[in-house]
Structures are given as C-alpha cells and as structure tokens.
Write a protein that binds this DNA or RNA. Structure first.
Lengths: 135, 135
DNA sequence: CTTGACCCCGTACCGTGGTACGGGGTTTAG
DNA sequence: CTAAACCCCGTACCACGGTACGGGGTCAAG
C-alpha cells in the first residue's frame, strides 16, 4: 500500500512510463502527490485504473469515453440522477457492443461447424452478421 | 443489384469516398472491376462489407484484424482445419471482449441502482470491474 | 562522493486510420 | 456542346494515442 513511483507503476500495470504521464495529462489519471523533489507518488490502486483503461480501449472505447466512464460516481457536484442517466447511456452502448459481438461469434461458430456438418457456406459468411440496424 | 460507383457506394454505406479507396488499398475491399474509362464498379454487397468494417472497428478490432475476420472462409487455398483454428481463436477473443463488457455493465448497473437502494458506493466503483486476469 | 538508475519537463516524432487537395479525364442533364 | 457532377491517381495533411529524446535534477549502493 505504499506509494509507487511512476516507473514502478508503469511496470506493474504493464504500460510505458510515458503513457502514464500522457494519461495524467489527458486527465485519465489524477495528478498524484509529489515528493519533496517533485517525484510523482501514485497510490497503489493507480495500477488498477491503468489496467482498466487498457482493457476498455480494447473494447473500442476512446480515451475520452473512458474518462467519462471513470468519472461516473456520486459526488457533491453531480446528483445521482445525472449519474444514473449517464450510466444508463453507457449501459446501452455496451449492450449494443455485446450484441454485435454475439452476432459475429455466432457466425464464426457456424464457420467452425463446417468441418463436422459439411454444410455449404456462402462465399464470406461473416458478412451475414451485423446486418441491418442503422449506424 | 447493378454495380455501384464509388460515390454511390460511399453514400450508401455512410462512409467517406476516400475511405473506400483507402480500404481497397488496405485490402479490406477487393479491387472491383472497372468500366472502360477506369471507374470502379462495385458489386452492391460491398456496402454491407463496409458497414461490417465500421461496426467491427467500434468493437475494438483493428483494420488488420478485420481483414483477417473477413477472410475467414473455406477456399481452395485454405483448408477447413486451418480456418477452423483461426475462427476458434477469434471466438476466444470475442468471448473475452464480451466478458469484459459484461463486467463493466454489471458495475454500471450497480451504479444506477444507487438511486433506489441508496447503497453506499466506493469512490469510483467502476474500477472494481475488470479486475484480475492477466493482460 | 561518485556512478548508475530513476525522475522531471518540454518537445519532437511515430503508426493507424483516415481526409483533403489538385490536376486531370468522364458522364450526363440541359 | 458545355457545365456540373463524378471519377481517376498521387501526395499531403490531420487527429489520436502514444513513444522517444535530451538536458537536467535526485537517490541509493559501493
């Protein structure tokens, strides 16, 4: 639970040290307290936050969106109703993503089934997923 | 079912015309036949393919990965066993994405539940999702 | 008390995924 | 038969998300 220097944090989270500074600049990581000589001293849960950011990126969220996600919490300055609305919007986004992924997955499963069933497949069956629904 | 010029295709798929050319260069779209004067004449299902690409991008796939996804199909040059293995790898990727999304969603649901239950929440509850499991 | 590892900051540079530009031919509607 | 609208191609440029560089201070081991 002792504070981490930027190098240790970066190593622990598996990211580049410069990336940590970059996220701080972008506001994804709070500006940490500094030692007398100006070194950043990160709370140990900063590593968790970094890992969250990386995972969320892999799921197609931009850094801006991730920042929004991370700031969803009840506070003095934001009422729970506002938070609730924002969270529900995010949930809808996420559910749409999940549906799309399920759809691709289903298609891929059909594809792996070919070997067993020898069913005929269209030229590029994957195109059959993700049809309809406006952008 | 008549062929589309690049402009019509772009409009139909809701993408920039230059993007179509870019995808063609990147190999995500087959080089289409040309008219006598050199105009591209796309089969009408190219629009579907473009929409697929855009959706897959929103799900965090890079253009390179999308190209791979799109090329998953049985052909003369690729045996079904190879395809099967590739498809199964993609399925595993997708399932991991879905799990991560479900995890974030669950956290967000807890958040929206606050209004009703007035349960105390940690400072930033979203961090609790996506914990553990190596990158 | 020096040497190597680490940190600071600002700025420059890079890969990905486009998007724009510009000089030129083509097609089509009036 | 001409003007608008479209297409060609190559090249330049852009935003995002980093990543590297370089000149300087700091800290810990020998």
């Amino acid at each position: 639970m002792k504070p981490l220097t930027i190098g240790h944090l970066a190593k622990q989270a598996g990211v580049n040290l410069e990336t940590v500074r970059y996220y701080e600049r972008r506001g994804l990581l709070a500006r940490p307290p500094r030692s007398a000589s100006g070194y950043r001293l990160f709370p140990s849960d900063a590593a968790r936050r970094l890992k969250f950011i990386r995972r969320a990126q892999e799921l197609g969220f931009s850094l801006t969106e991730i920042k929004e996600l991370l700031s969803l919490r009840v506070s003095r300055t934001t009422t729970s109703a506002v938070i609730r609305a924002r969270a529900e919007a995010k949930i809808a986004d996420i559910e749409a993503k999940i549906r799309s992924l399920e759809s691709i997955k289903k298609t891929l499963r059909k594809l792996t089934g070919v070997c067993d069933g020898c069913a005929p497949l269209s030229e590029c069956p994957i195109l059959e997923s993700l049809d309809r629904e406006g952008a």
